[in-house]
């Protein structure tokens, strides 16, 4: 019997991104529901976090975008008691910082999963922006489709906009990265 054909890299990547997005938000007690057939632009995006990445076989940007409300709800548990308001300028600064870090943590998860496939991503420092109705540019790759989730009335949009070299094959290679929350004492 012949071996099954390997899945296309984009399929594996989308699966990893979806799983890790759900896990990242679950870690801050936010349950997300995937949207099967999203549109092309978010109905309401007020904050976005971004991290660039490169490797031998792909390069691009990860961006997550959502509402002030969802980023506020997804803060670490110890900080959620601090009230924040969309009418207070310094709270936007604070949530931009969190949007950066949240994107950084999501990219860290994706990066750590790709280690098992022999892919080593180098990432930029994260950045974030805010505005009243953020819209996205056309992706660099035509194969990029946003992954969209809902939590209550809030939407979360996740873009993994990657140029992938045609020779890239994602097959498990055995080595594993440290897991989120893991402590290694030397």
């Amino acid at each position: 019997m012949s071996e099954p054909a390997p899945l296309p890299p984009r399929t594996i990547l989308d699966r990893i991104i979806a799983e890790q997005t759900l896990a990242q938000f679950a870690a801050t007690d936010v349950a997300l529901t995937p949207v099967a057939h999203p549109g092309t632009q978010p109905a309401q995006a007020e904050l976005a976090g971004m991290v660039g990445f490169t490797s031998e076989s792909m390069r691009g940007t990860v961006m997550i975008a959502s509402t002030f409300s969802l980023f506020a709800r997804s803060r670490p548990a110890a900080l959620r008691d601090q009230p924040v308001s969309a009418y207070v300028a310094r709270d936007w600064l604070y949530l931009r910082d969190w949007a950066s870090e949240l994107t950084n943590q999501l990219v860290g998860r994706i990066k750590n999963r790709l280690v098992a496939f022999g892919v080593s991503l180098r990432v930029s420092t994260p950045t974030a922006l805010s505005g009243s109705a953020l819209a996205f540019a056309t992706p660099s790759s035509k194969r990029t489709k946003p992954l969209v989730f809902t939590s209550g009335s809030d939407e979360l949009w996740v873009f993994f906009d990657a140029i992938i070299e045609p020779e890239l094959e994602l097959s498990p290679q055995g080595e594993a990265a440290a897991e989120e929350g893991e402590l290694i004492l030397f």
């Binding site: 990242q24 870690a27 801050t28 670490p76 110890a78 943590q105 860290g108 750590n112 440290a178 897991e179 989120e180 929350g181 893991e182 402590l183 290694i184 004492l185 030397f186």
Partner: peptide
């Protein structure tokens, strides 16, 4: 002395 991966559990950070 140690390596810890974010997101972290506060109680594990304190003990470390």
């Amino acid at each position: 002395k140690a390596w810890m991966v974010k997101p972290f559990k506060p109680e594990l950070l304190v003990s470390a």
